[in-house]
């Protein structure tokens, strides 16, 4: 057995150690992707809405209406 295979076998516990790390990685990357996409979607939505408002942009608009 090569040293790399020895390493990945984790003393016989590779079947438990690697899935644990893989799941953690998948969940963390998934959280970042979902969260980042959500932010970009909201930003695009807000930009589209603000461009629809002629002459009343951004904060001055809020200052008038809130």
């Amino acid at each position: 057995m090569t040293s790399l295979a020895t390493y990945f076998s984790m003393g016989g516990y590779g079947g438990f150690v690697w899935p644990a790390y893989a799941l953690t990685a998948v969940v963390m990357v998934g959280l970042v992707v979902v969260t980042w996409r959500g932010l970009k979607a909201r930003e695009a939505e807000l930009k589209a809405l603000q461009e629809l408002m002629p002459g009343r942009r951004g904060r001055t608009h809020e200052a008038q209406d809130q």
């Binding site: 984790m10 003393g11 016989g12 516990y13 590779g14 438990f16 150690v17 644990a20 790390y21 953690t24």
Partner: peptide, 9 residues
């Protein structure tokens, strides 16, 4: 043994 490495996640 090596299973202790699961602890770090």
């Amino acid at each position: 043994g090596e299973s202790v490495r699961i602890m770090y996640v």
